[in-house]
Design a protein around this nucleic acid. Structure first.
Lengths: 195, 195, 195, 195
DNA sequence: TATGAATGAGCGTTCATTCAT
DNA sequence: CATGAATGAACGCTCATTCAT
């Protein structure tokens, strides 16, 4: 049978840009935006330092690419939940389950999205990044689920859900206590079951 | 008669150190730690740049002083509540009221304490700051109040309260919507009334 | 029957090198040598960046080729004058006419040859380019004409003529005033008529 | 008698900025703007590299300062001529004498002002420098002298004078022949005597 | 022959920190 | 005590040049 992965053979770039974005996502989470140098990113991605600029014109473009990667990841995760669960309630519970999937990492470095938004919002307006979407996406999705459950206050409930997660993630991180996050998740799950 | 303001004449310009700390608190909140230079702080404090090092040996000491100032402010605010209110329930409500006292500022720059913890937790362990106290203090205080109300799950409730605030503050900031914070505060107040 | 266009099929895209040189001549004039990158030249020539090095080993070789193109152009122009005019006097006037043929371009970017010589003479001796010929060629030609007119000071007159042009071109460019160049040309023409 | 140079004693900066500007003027002349690095300038000025930025915010500011130094030097030289000579004719001759005062340097590196204008005019409009004044100043001054001599075409004569100098300087530099400049100066002097 | 990708040396710039007075 | 000046390490970025295919 013929090789179906023909492009892979010719591909001159074995995911180098992809590796750079992955490294950026990781380091931005672990060290923050300001403390992460392009040399750091290049090193983790195993790419020569100067080569970063073949793929990205500026550091800000790398950050933007990392934000975009987060967006894609969120979209994918929500689509996956949609595909795997039918009822709005089970979908919301699945989201809460995602919250605790990486509780150890979140405890060490905070919520990847929350800390990114927090840091980037410190920038002056003319250097701002479109991070609001990172929050808006899961909120809008949760709102849809609550609305499907007949809740008129769907928007508020969605905000409440995300705020509970982000707040717990921050406390877990600051106090270095993963149980804060898991306890909060358990409470949220119970809430979703009973209301 | 002798000069009664003798110290004023020789002593360092009154409140110079104090002004530096106040400027640091303000700028760390608005611009973040990494983006704020000592020159920025000196300028806002109206202190000559080189003079900062008379009061602080390193930038980290300035940050530590700002953290300490936050600690004092929190202690003061909680002591003030203790003095002004008798019942645990009214005290907790007073705390929630504090949450929204600066909702506009929080919407613009996030919770001063939350964003500080978030950013400083990105540091490697050997450069860490004792920011956990900033969170621990109000949590322990709230736990005391919940316990006084006879709640066995006082610790969890305190965490839940603070997480709700920090999460709402983050969402308000990221989505630039102060109503997220005020709505959350209203819900918390109602919760404290009815439970 | 054999393919009569054999070379066209295999040979490098026709005029690729030529396009590169033309682009170099243009950009070196407009932006100067140092400010013009090989990527700029490749882009204007519509040649892939990496491909430049198939035709030229270094950037300096591209510059050398541009200088050579100027040399050819000058030789061609002078030969053309020789062919079209008989008397030395009319030939010299024809040269002066050339001076103002592109007065707008000269006003915007200076004399292509003069500015090239000016910039390249800033180089250390071991990186020098043979730009003197660019000046020497028209001077020697003018000298021949003046000599044919019986002038013993032919060399000086030739230098005077070229200096008047180059100086006017520089002033036109710096002061953004094309009339400086055209006025100078008119005076030179009158001088050639009357002396 | 009291020390009249009291400020000199306290002066914390022994002409460091001045040395930097002088080094910039020298190197910009010898190597051109683009080829001169701030490290070069710092080294010639015997100033630590990083310290340049205490006096100038950007490299462009250093260039601007060098341009300004040229302006001052020109103003000073013209004022000096005005002070030393009475008649317009002798003043113009004095200017021509200045042209050849540094004929060796001009032969090696071109006219400091002419080459600066030539190189900086290659910049895009939004990065332009105010170099026109460098040319305008001596032209306006010469025009004044010619007008004082009763010449209606004073402006043209002034342009002609400066163009003759700048053109000769360029040719001297390109052909590495100082006699081109001195011969031109002699001719100009003669012209000023006889017309 | 042709080309997208890769590479590293070097430059401008920032800023925490130190020093001389 | 106070301060303008000084310092150097490090970062973002450019670009001529090379390489693998």
């Amino acid at each position: 049978m013929a090789d179906l992965t023909q492009t892979a053979a010719v591909a001159p770039r074995p995911g180098k840009r992809q590796r750079l974005v992955a490294a950026a996502v990781q380091l931005l989470h672990q060290q923050g935006v300001q403390r992460t140098t392009l040399a750091d990113i290049a090193q983790v991605a195993e790419v020569p330092p100067g080569n970063v600029y073949y793929y990205f014109k500026t550091k800000d473009e790398v950050v933007a690419a990392a934000i975009d990667a987060h967006l894609q990841q969120i979209r994918g995760a929500l689509a996956d939940i949609d595909a795997r669960f039918d009822s709005p309630r089970s979908r919301l519970k699945a989201l809460v389950d995602l919250f605790t999937a990486d509780s150890e990492t979140v405890t060490q470095h905070g919520c990847p999205i929350g800390t990114l938004c927090s840091e980037l919002d410190k920038r002056p307006a003319h250097e701002a990044f479109p991070v609001a979407d990172l929050m808006h996406l899961p909120i809008a999705w949760a709102e849809t689920q609550f609305r499907a459950l007949g809740r008129a206050d769907a928007h508020d409930l969605a905000l409440q859900l995300m705020a509970a997660y982000e707040g717990s993630a921050l406390l877990s991180n600051t106090l270095r206590d993963p149980t804060i996050l898991t306890t909060a998740a358990r409470r949220l799950t119970h809430w979703l079951t009973t209301f």
